[in-house]
Amino acid sequence: MTTTFTLNGAGVTAEVDPDMPLLWVVRDHLGLTGTKFGCGIAACGACTMHVDGVATRTCVLPVSAVEGARVTTIEGVSNGENLSPVQQAWLDHQVPQCGYCQSGMIMAAEALLAENPKPTDDDIDAAITNICRCGTYDRVRAAIHSVAKQKGEAL
């Protein structure tokens, strides 16, 4: 069986079991390991990618479900060497500690800001449900607000 989709802007065809979750197709077959395995039951968010722009937990998403879709991983967020505003805010606020959950955290934040450029604290509470065992939540929140503020100033 093959599944064809767009990964970080490039077309890919994966010859794998259609039931294989997108996470493992991307990590083990396509070799992009920035997206992490945390729980395997979509509870922690470490595996978050964008599927057609929507933050999606991919450890339980069969690859067949993304046939023809546009998939973006953490590797596809920056524009070459240039970090995205969210990634830059993550550095400015020194958000990561161990860093393992942060790919998923950044992908969740990117999706939130794309949909809602000026999220309130309540919006952030509702959208960012990823687990960070190091407890970086205060900086995640501050970084998201700072991106929103920059966007506001740029308008």
Partner: peptide, 11 residues
């Protein structure tokens, strides 16, 4: 940290 915001840090 630069590697931990772009997915290149190897765990």
């Amino acid at each position: 940290l630069p590697q931990k915001v772009n997915g290149t840090a190897q765990f």
